[in-house]
Design a protein around this nucleic acid. Structure first.
Lengths: 257, 257
DNA sequence: CGATCTTTTGACTCTGATCAACCGGGGTGG
DNA sequence: CCACCCCGGTTGATCAGAGTCAAAAGATCG
């Protein structure tokens, strides 16, 4: 059963389980010392529970602080004047929010919780890496990898929106989500939670919800995926990979995941 | 007459003029000390001339070093297996190429010169900021702003591709290029060089060259822009701004440009 | 058990793609 | 010097992927 789905339904969290996501993710990117892990655990002690649909960052307003997303899903998005919305990126459990915009006076996009979310203030993390990088070389390395992965996700997104069909886009996004969740130890092989409405998926992929609906139907009809209870299972990952021209940004095998 | 167009035609460069672009850009973002400016000038002394259509960075291959684009235009792009191309970002005079991917083992996208290009190895710049940030606080700040601007450009691009019509996309891109060039001291009010074929513009905006052709015709017919000799002039910048829902990422007035 | 949100379906429209041809200029080679 | 060619821009005709509009059927939630 889906941890996220269960959480989405009941809004109950098991903190000791949840807080593994950031540590699993960062230590998969660079093996962390005990000291570094303890630093992260300490950081996450000051957590904050935030309910779904809450705006964490508002476009145009100074960013309060970078955040570590301990658990739950969020979206980065921009709105056009007439109400059109484009989702720029997903923020998945274990990932960082806003680390790249330290001196930016105004956030270039908004961030909103999609599910109930647990975040921690990541400012101490940034400060540690800045002030005493020699004390946390592995952590610093992991954070650089994080930045690279975020970048890669953005590029993927641009290519999807610019040059792929609805069918390809959807397949590509699902493969990316699978890999990103796997890195944080979420998901389960070819199955993963997907707590998104079709409307949200549409705003992510630059389509309408009607068209997303039909595209998902096609993917199911052709036995590429199954969906139930906010869970997606990729039945033909290799075929999807070929269709979407998807390449994993990281060698998940090499990271022992 | 267009500096870039002239350069594109003759491949002759006046280095003393050209090399101002990076300095103008960086010192507009944060007022640099004489020492910092001298460091940049020294850095740019080791320049390299590269002809149009040369690949500076190849997707999947380790990035040799970050580069400072002293002059000329380049594109970041990705190719799909069947040959579709999506341009991810432009690299304009004065901008940095690849500063964000320091530890990335493989470049997430390729970079190719569109015009003859002059680049300098920016590794010393990165090292300076890392090793002795206290010696170059303004420069470090300027580089952080750079990262923020690059991020903003990418977000703009995602929104254009995901949620705007061909007409809106084109207007939006032109406004962005105007502002980015202005920051480096290129362009001239509402006029700026645009050394791109319609094919390139199409691969940037996720359209076909045929459709770009018709969209440009519409923009001219409605007296929004004029084009000649690789120069674009925005006749109705305010109207374009409204149409494209464009917001300048930086207060160009405040930067005294 | 209404009320609201999400998913699904059908009919129709339209933006932008495709295909094909032609034009015009600049470079090249005979 | 001129013919040729190639590339980039332009045009027209047709096609298709995705959007729009509207309504109904399921879910969810107070």
């Amino acid at each position: 059963m889906s941890r996220v789905a269960r959480r989405g339904a009941t809004a109950t969290i098991r903190p000791d389980e949840a807080e593994f996501a950031p540590i699993r993710r960062l230590s998969a990117l660079a093996p962390l010392s005990t000291r570094e892990v303890n630093f992260l655990i300490e950081l996450m002690r000051r957590r904050q529970q935030i309910s779904a649909r809450t705006e964490l960052i508002t476009e145009g307003v100074a960013i309060p602080a970078p955040m570590l997303l301990i658990d739950g899903w969020a979206i980065r998005y921009r709105l056009l004047a007439d109400g059109r919305r484009q989702i720029i990126d997903l923020c998945l459990p274990g990932e960082l929010i806003g680390p790249c915009w330290p001196v930016t006076p105004a956030a270039p996009s908004s961030v909103m919780a999609l599910t109930p979310v647990i975040v921690a203030d990541a400012a101490p993390l940034r400060n540690l890496v800045r002030v005493a990088p020699e004390d946390c070389s592995n952590l610093a390395l992991a954070l650089e990898y994080c930045a690279g992965l975020t970048e890669t996700s953005l590029l993927n997104h641009v290519v999807r929106l610019g040059r792929q069909t609805a069918y390809e886009r959807t397949a590509h996004l699902f493969l990316e989500i699978r890999d990103r969740l796997a890195l944080s130890g979420c998901g389960n092989g070819e199955s993963f939670p997907l707590p998104l409405t079709q409307e949200t998926l549409a705003d992510m992929l630059g389509l309408t919800s009607v068209h997303i609906n039909r595209t998902l139907q096609q993917l199911r009809r052709e036995r590429m995926i199954t969906m139930s209870e906010n869970m997606v299972t990729l039945l033909e990952p290799a075929a999807l990979q070929a269709i979407a021209d998807y390449h994993s940004p990281i060698d998940l095998q090499a990271l022992r995941i």
